[in-house]
Simulated assay, not measured.
Amino acid sequence: MSYHLPSHVSFGFVGGGAVLLDIEADRYLMLRGAEAGALAALGTSGAPRSGADPALDRLTARGLLAKGPGAAVLPISVPAPTASALELAGKAERASALEIGRYRAGASLRLRFQGIGATVARWRALKARHLRGRADRATDPGAMARGYAAARVQLPWRRLCVPDSLALARFLWKRDVDCDVLFGVRIDPFAAHAWVQKGELLLSDNINAVADYTPVFRL
């Protein structure tokens, strides 16, 4: 019997266990012991190393795994950021506060009225549409991120990591920058954060703002 991750579930190994994000249910789950071990053992093959495993049955019953072929049961893997565009010296591309405000308001309204699952689905479609055949034509994503940050301070809304990350990503995707929105967690005490990153370059935060977080979701 093989297993795969449902499309709405992703995870990372954190603090001796596995933290799963069920994006449709908008919930994080911490797995330890047998369940975390069973998840790790699936690896790239998607099949347990031995016969029936009660831990896999429990995960399947909870909708966190699915039987049959599909997405590999692997943790989110991205390089740790080594620099932040907001901390590097350099020019800032001019950005419109009106455009940024439109993206930020759109993200907030979708999150409020449609939830995180539907919002992520919408942003996935936007990413595919904006980057189809055009990704990485931009020469300086750092300058664009700095321009966004300079214009963002003109808006009246307080910073919230999820809608702000979604707005920044949409702004960059429209300019052919192939970047990712990452959701990460830390343990003891538990906290979650979202940020935007391209390769090893952080585009939305200072380095120390994300240093303690392990990615568990990638958009």
Rank of each mutant, 00 (worst) to 15 (best):
D140A: 09
P141H: 01
P141N: 05
P141K: 03
P141R: 05
G142Y: 00
G142C: 05
G142K: 02
G142N: 03
G142F: 02
A143L: 04
A143N: 00
A143E: 03
A143W: 01
M144Y: 06
M144T: 00
M144D: 00
A145P: 02
A145L: 00
A145E: 02
A145K: 07
R146I: 06
R146C: 03
R146V: 07
R146E: 07
R146D: 06
R146N: 09
R146F: 01
R146M: 00
G147K: 09
G147V: 07
G147H: 08
G147W: 07
Y148I: 02
Y148S: 01
Y148A: 01
Y148E: 02
Y148T: 03
A149Y: 06
A149K: 12
A149D: 13
A149M: 10
A150K: 15
A150G: 13
A150C: 12
A151T: 01
A151N: 09
A151F: 08
A151C: 06
R152Q: 12
R152A: 13
R152F: 00
V153T: 13
V153W: 12
V153E: 13
Q154P: 00
Q154H: 13
Q154I: 04
Q154M: 14
L155P: 06
L155S: 10
L155E: 07
P156D: 07
P156F: 10
P156C: 04
W157H: 10
R158K: 13
R158G: 14
R158S: 15
R158D: 15
R159E: 14
R159S: 14
R159L: 14
L160E: 15
L160K: 14
L160F: 11
L160A: 15
L160R: 15
C161Q: 12
C161L: 13
V162L: 15
V162T: 15
V162W: 05
V162I: 15
V162D: 12
P163C: 10
P163R: 07
D164R: 10
D164L: 10
D164Y: 08
D164Q: 12
S165T: 09
S165V: 09
S165R: 01
L166K: 04
L166Y: 08
L166D: 11
L166I: 08
L166V: 06
L166C: 11
A167W: 03
A167H: 03
A167P: 04
A167L: 05
L168G: 11
L168N: 08
L168F: 06
L168P: 08
L168A: 09
L168K: 03
A169I: 00
A169N: 06
A169W: 00
A169M: 02
R170T: 13
R170F: 00
R170K: 12
R170M: 10
